[in-house]
Design a binder for these strands. Structure first.
Lengths: 343, 343
DNA sequence: CTGTTAGCGCATTCAG
DNA sequence: CTGAATGCGCTAACAG
């Protein structure tokens, strides 16, 4: 029996006679024998499975195109590292004390935390319980916590600098909601780039402070706000906090008969699967989905191997992908006037 | 120890003194004790987990907006039934003999099969090995196999009949590819509806027989083919085999300056998350994602409970959702002429 | 009503 | 190099 175990696991350092090895193989095949992952996990105290935890909100994150890309990246990395994946959703963290134990029953060796709110409540609980965890695309300040994120501030700056370099001076931003951290970061980058160029965000920075339930509708209203400005004050470019908002902006612009990019440049963020499918194809900041997944899985495996270890933080850069939705502003008289006024 | 087990599992028929019950609860709490799902699974031979199997193609199904909806439906149902979910991808069925065992190691009680090709190879292997399985959104003829699908033929018929009822006579279909079954079904429904109205699909039914790798690009070419027809032969409506193709059609139409729906009606299929976000919002056939998930999970649990049972097949209807992308055809002279020619 | 016993299927000692 | 014994953490059957 022990011999069989060694053969089937290719146990290193185990010396088995080739003949025996063969005999085991044949027998196993004939019987259709499959080692039980469960029994093995029971004694190894490890099951090579990572859990992906999503909250279940009114708007399911599963439905977001950004999530699709991220999940794809994570799964690819997980497979490469020989890890299985479970998807957790529907657990409300409101009663963290009750939900938490569910994540300590040995089904998974560790967890990736996505789309979380109330991190103050979740993260310490997980950390105190010594559950290996990696936070993805969110920020939480605790030295014990491993995290991987994209540099949203730099991304926001890059987007804005690009528009400035194209010659835009009145640059709007539609940040959607500050519900999640990323929008705050991207907006900060936008502020930085404007400030460095001596430009002002007022009254061009619009969004909603409270919720992301009606993102699509709200984004439309926010874009509308900017379009309603008097022609000589209207922005000539729009930086949108993500590609969904950008898609909505393109829609509203089309409805209003504003040509993109001739009359209005649009830049998104994420490069999700819809970006290339817009009309015109979207200039946007690309999330490195594969690298994000790889980094997240690697960090998590580190945490699993060394449960006490200090959590590393990884910050990945985004990359500007220029497509057709942004170009220099129209050189109209007002525009020129405005430009000299501002600079 | 047995008492603890009974308390923690609320074992039915077990009579425990309230005082003892309380004592156990308190102790468990104090120790932060969590029963091991693994050990329990070892003896119960069941782990309350279902696996979702996707192939990993060159185009990851994870990136499809249709999958997002379906996954959401499945997960919702799984949670309601107290099931955990695992996501399997990256296993190539080409060597089914080697991959198959991976699905028999007890990690999951059963599987949902999505986006599969080469069903002839996979399904019998799974069935012979007595692995509980439900096929989703595909057709395979074996009485042992449980399956849930949407009635694609009826859906295709409904879409086409709707366009006919609006007054269209030259109705194109862009089916994309016959790579998957669904396109074949939807096309069949389209044929049926046309035939019933005495109309012909020639030369309006376009698509690609072989691959879905470059769906987006190919769909564009196919739409282009129809637009290149002489004006008096050009279709006045397009039925697209899914919303992605419809989105592409809208894009091409916009590029060509063809107004939707005034000059060209467009109907999609799926009602995925992008349908409402198109310009104009897409008239389409809605997949009942929640019901699909519920049916799939229910059938799978049936199979798990009764491993030998004959597999039930469930066929769910789609529902026409009328939005703004379809309307009656323009009453031009040629159109009227053409109409009388055809009917 | 509670505690004791056995064994789920494996990997890891340790003798042979 | 191979096989027998042990125990992972739990639940089911049973005896008290």
């Amino acid at each position: 029996m022990a011999t069989v175990s060694k053969v089937l696991n290719d146990a290193s350092g185990a010396q088995i006679a080739p003949a025996t090895r063969e005999r085991v193989r044949v027998a196993a095949d004939a019987l259709g024998y499959r080692p039980s992952a469960i029994a093995r996990a029971l004694i190894r105290k490890q099951i090579d499975t990572i859990g992906i935890i999503l909250p279940q909100g009114n708007v399911s994150p599963l439905r977001s195109t950004f999530f699709a890309g991220l999940l794809d990246g994570i799964l690819q990395a997980a497979v490469q590292h020989g890890q299985h994946t479970m998807l957790f959703t529907g657990h409300v963290w409101m009663d963290a004390e009750r939900s938490l134990p569910a994540y300590r029953d040995g089904r998974c060796d560790g967890f990736l935390l996505l789309y979380q709110r109330d991190l103050d409540r979740i993260v310490p609980a997980l950390l105190d319980a010594n559950v290996p965890v990696v936070l993805l695309n969110e920020t939480y300040d605790d030295p014990r916590l491993a995290a991987v994120d994209v540099d949203n501030v730099a991304g926001g700056r890059t987007a804005t600098e690009y528009l400035i370099a194209l010659g835009h001076r009145r640059i709007g931003m539609v940040y959607g909601t500050l519900f999640f951290d990323f929008a705050r970061g991207r907006r900060e980058g936008y502020f930085q780039a404007l400030a460095a160029a001596g430009l002002t965000p007022d009254p061009y920075c619009v969004g909603d402070r409270y919720t992301n339930e009606a993102l699509w509708q709200n984004a439309g209203e926010h874009v509308g706000l900017l379009l309603d400005l008097p022609p000589n004050q209207r922005p000539t470019a729009l930086f949108c906090a993500n590609d969904e908002i950008a898609a909505r902006a393109l829609q509203v612009l089309a409805e209003r008969g504003v040509r993109v990019p001739e009359e209005m440049s649009v830049v998104g963020f994420n490069d999700d699967l819809t970006a290339t499918r817009q009309t015109p194809p979207l200039t946007t900041l690309q999330q490195p989905f594969e690298e994000l997944g790889e980094a997240a899985v690697s960090l998590l495996l580190e945490q699993i191997r060394e449960p006490g270890a200090r959590g590393r933080k990884i910050l990945l850069p985004t990359r500007l992908v220029t497509r057709a939705s942004a170009c220099p502003p129209p050189p109209t008289a007002e525009n020129i006037t405005q430009r000299s006024q501002l600079s």
